[in-house]
Write a protein that binds this DNA or RNA. Structure first.
Lengths: 229, 229
DNA sequence: GAGAAGCTTACCGATTCCGAACGGGTGTCC
DNA sequence: GGACACCCGTTCGGAATCGGTAAGCTTCTC
C-alpha cells in the first residue's frame, strides 16, 4: 500500500481528501501545518506528499525548499489556488513534481497521484488493491472502508471481514464452516452456532436496499451464502 | 489448473477420490504408499497433498514430518479414521493444515480442498470449477445455481445434489442405492423407498422440456438413472 | 460505566423431505 | 394375446429441517 502525506490546513478539505485517498486504497497521514508536516516527514518518509502551498505558518514553499535541500526524492504534488501562477512556477523551481489548481476534481487529483507514484515507484505501487463493487456499494479492502451510494457505511470489523470473505469468493458459495474458519478462525468448524447468520443479517441491513429480499448477499439453502455483483 | 497429490493405499478409495477430484477440474496424481508419495513429491511439487495417515509402509505421519522438516510449504489435507483423534492431533503438530475423518462426504472433502487452495493461492486457483451443460441447462456448482434457457431455476438442496451426482457419472448409470449413499448418506442402502424416484421426477419437472418424455434425465429400467448430455 | 461488538438463545414461518398409497407401464410366461 | 408380477411415476400431507430475526447476555474498549 502506498503511503501519502497530506499537508493541508483547511480541515474540511483535509477531511475530504483523506477520505477520498483512503478509499482508493492509500494509507494517508494528515498534517495541519508546515511544522507538523516537517515532523511527520522525518518520522516516516511517505511515497508521495500532497502539499497545499497556502499554509498559515511557515508556508508550503519554504517546506518544499527545505525538503529538496535535504536531498529528499519523495515526489511532491502541490495544491494551489488559481491565479497564483507565480507561486506555481516557484513551486516547480523548488522541486514540486506536479500541481493542481483549486478547485480541482477528485478524478484529476487521483489521476495525478497515480501518475506520480507510477513515475516514482512503478505500477505495482500506483495500481494498488482493487475496489470491489456490487449494486450501489463500493468496498475498499486496503483502507477498510465501504461506501453505499457514495456515503460511508460503518461496518464492525467482523462484518467487514465477512464481507471481504464473500467478495473473495467472486460469486461462489461460501459455507458457514468455511466462513467460521476464515473470518472467526475456528478450527475445523462444525456448525452449532448462528453467528454467521446474524452477521449476514447485519450486513444486509446495512448494505441491501431491501434487507428482507436481498439482491446481492444471497442465501444458498443448505450450503451457505454467496455474493452476487 | 491446480495439481493435487493423493497418497492413499486403499485402491478403491483412491480410484473414487481421483475420479471425484479430476471431475472437479483438478489434476491428480496418486501414490499408493509413502515411498511413492515421497518420490512424486520430489519430482513435482503439487498445489495440495491429500494424505491418508493409515499407510502400510512408512506411514503417513512420518512422511508428513519429513515434508515439514524439509521446509516444504505445500498445504496438506489429512484423511483419518474416526476415533483416531490422537493421530489427528499429532498430524497438526507435524504440520497438517486440515483433516477430515472417514467416512466423509464428497462435498465435505471438496469444500476443504477448496478452502486450503484458497488459503494458499487465492480464489483464482481454488474456484475455477467447471460449468456443466446438457440440453438447454447450465449447472454451476461453484455458485450453486442452475440456468435453463438462461433463466435461474430454483432447485431444492437435495435436488441439486442429486443432479450433481448424476452429472458426475458422466453418462453412466447410477443405481438407486448408489445415489442414496452419495446424496442421502444412507449407510448400506436397501431400496424400499421411492425417495430417489420422487426427486428425479421433480428434477424432470423443472429441467426437462417434456417431463413425461425426458430427453436427458433417463430411466434405465432395473438399473437406475443416467444423465445424457 | 456507557456503549459498541459479538455471540447465543429462542421462536416463527417457510421450505423441504419422505413414506404411503395408487395407478400406469413393461416384460414375461403360458 | 392375455394375465400376472414387477417396476416406475406421481400425488399428498404431516413432520422435520432450515434460515431470519429479535432480544438478551458477555466481553472489550474508551
Amino acid at each position: 500500500m502506498a503511503h501519502i502525506l497530506l499537508i493541508e490546513d483547511n480541515e474540511d478539505l483535509a477531511f475530504g481528501l483523506r477520505a477520498t485517498l483512503e478509499f482508493e486504497g492509500y494509507g494517508v497521514e494528515v498534517a495541519g501545518d508546515g511544522a507538523e508536516g516537517r515532523k511527520l516527514l522525518h518520522e516516516h518518509v511517505p511515497d508521495l506528499v500532497v502539499l497545499d502551498l497556502m499554509l498559515p505558518d511557515a508556508d508550503g514553499l519554504t517546506l518544499l525548499g527545505e525538503l529538496r535541500n535535504e536531498g529528499a526524492r519523495v515526489p511532491v504534488l502541490v495544491l494551489t489556488a488559481r491565479g497564483e501562477e507565480s507561486d506555481v512556477l516557484m513551486g516547480f523551481d523548488r522541486g514540486a513534481d506536479d500541481y493542481v489548481t483549486k478547485p480541482f476534481s477528485t478524478a484529476e487529483l487521483l489521476a495525478r497521484v497515480r501518475a506520480l507514484l507510477r513515475r516514482a515507484h512503478g505500477p505495482e505501487v500506483a495500481d494498488h488493491l482493487p475496489v470491489w463493487r456490487f449494486g450501489n456499494v463500493e468496498v475498499n479492502p486496503a483502507s477498510g472502508t465501504v461506501l453505499r451510494d457514495g456515503d460511508v457505511v460503518t461496518l464492525a470489523p467482523k462484518e467487514f471481514d465477512l464481507l471481504v470473505a464473500l467478495l473473495r469468493r467472486d460469486g461462489a458459495v461460501a459455507s458457514r464452516s468455511e466462513l467460521l474458519e476464515e473470518v472467526w478462525q475456528y478450527a475445523n468448524a462444525r456448525i452449532e452456532t448462528r453467528t454467521v447468520d446474524v452477521h449476514v443479517a447485519e450486513l444486509r441491513r446495512k448494505l441491501e436496499v431491501d434487507p428482507a429480499d436481498p439482491a446481492h448477499i444471497l442465501t444458498v439453502r443448505k450450503k451457505g451464502y454467496r455474493l452476487r455483483r
